Amino acid sequence: MPTILITGAGRGIGLEFARQYAAAGWRVLGTVRDPLAGRPLSDAGGEVYVADVADPASVARLKGALAGVQLDVVLNNAGIYGQDQSFGSVDADAFMAVMRTNALAPLKVAEAFADQLTGRKVIATITSLMGSIAENSSGNFYAYRASKAAANMVMKTLALDLGSRGITAIAVSPGWVRTDMGGAEAPLSPAEAVSGMRAVLDKVSLNDSGKFFHFDGSELPW
């Protein structure tokens, strides 16, 4: 049975990933920050682990809890949007909190679990088109944009550092999705976005390592 570790699997895109992978016969290991938020993940067929991936000590404890588990895919989904990010009102501490969750956490999770990857050997991070420097035509959203651009750089660097181990590392954008973060006006349902991203994860190989994909399979500019 193939196995996937999904961070931030208690709601939204992460929970939909858990539902779809469990329905496809995968063993799904999912993290939530609050144990009270684990019921939807459990109902979806996932195994619930409490971890705050923005805290390296919590990631280390998660590694201990999953010692010896062989993983096919590590999916860094956990992410936060942050507070007011318009020019002139960016709070420094809030900015760094977004960076810790969105950019540092995928690196620390990769460090923790790279040695447990077998089979597919894929590390993927859910980033955003808002992390593309080339596609930034509207400004604003400083912390979120910077954190996703940093996450993209983390994945590109992991691709170089882990390629000799046969590990594929990619960044994936879900598009604009109707979640708590995306809002009710977003055009995509979680099911549509996740179905597309799963197709990307299913087909990527070592030749794709270090690339940035949209949910529809197209490659995005950095």
Rank of each mutant, 00 (worst) to 15 (best):
A114Y: 08
Q116F: 15
L117P: 01
T118P: 00
R120C: 14
R120A: 15
R120V: 15
K121Q: 14
I123F: 04
A124Y: 04
T125I: 00
T125L: 01
I126R: 02
T127L: 05
T127Y: 11
S128Q: 06
L129N: 09
L129Q: 10
G131H: 07
S132R: 06
I133S: 10
I133P: 06
A134H: 15
A134N: 15
E135C: 07
E135I: 00
E135G: 10
N136W: 13
S138H: 13
S138N: 13
N140M: 12
N140I: 09
F141H: 13
Y142S: 06
A143Y: 11
A143P: 07
A143M: 08
A143S: 12
R145C: 10
R145E: 13
A146Y: 09
A146S: 13
S147I: 11
K148G: 08
A149M: 12
A149I: 11
A150N: 10
A150Q: 12
A151S: 09
A151I: 05
N152D: 14
N152K: 10
M153G: 12
M153I: 15
V154R: 08
M155A: 09
M155R: 05
K156L: 13
L158R: 02
L158S: 04
A159Q: 01
A159T: 03
L160K: 15
D161G: 09
D161F: 00
D161E: 11
D161V: 02
L162V: 02
L162W: 02
G163W: 01
S164I: 01
S164D: 09
R165P: 07
I167R: 04
T168P: 02
T168S: 05
I170P: 01
I170K: 03
A171F: 04
A171M: 06
A171C: 08
V172E: 03
S173K: 02
P174D: 00
P174S: 01
G175Q: 04
W176L: 03
V177R: 01
R178M: 01
T179E: 07
D180L: 08
M181W: 11
M181N: 11
G183L: 05
G183S: 07
G183V: 03
A184S: 10
E185A: 05
E185K: 03
E185F: 02
A186K: 03
A186Q: 07
A186C: 06
L188P: 00
L188I: 06
L188R: 00
S189Y: 05
S189L: 10
P190G: 02
P190T: 01
A191I: 08
A191Y: 08
A191F: 08
A191C: 08
V194A: 08
S195A: 15
S195D: 13
S195V: 07
M197E: 06
R198D: 13
A199V: 06
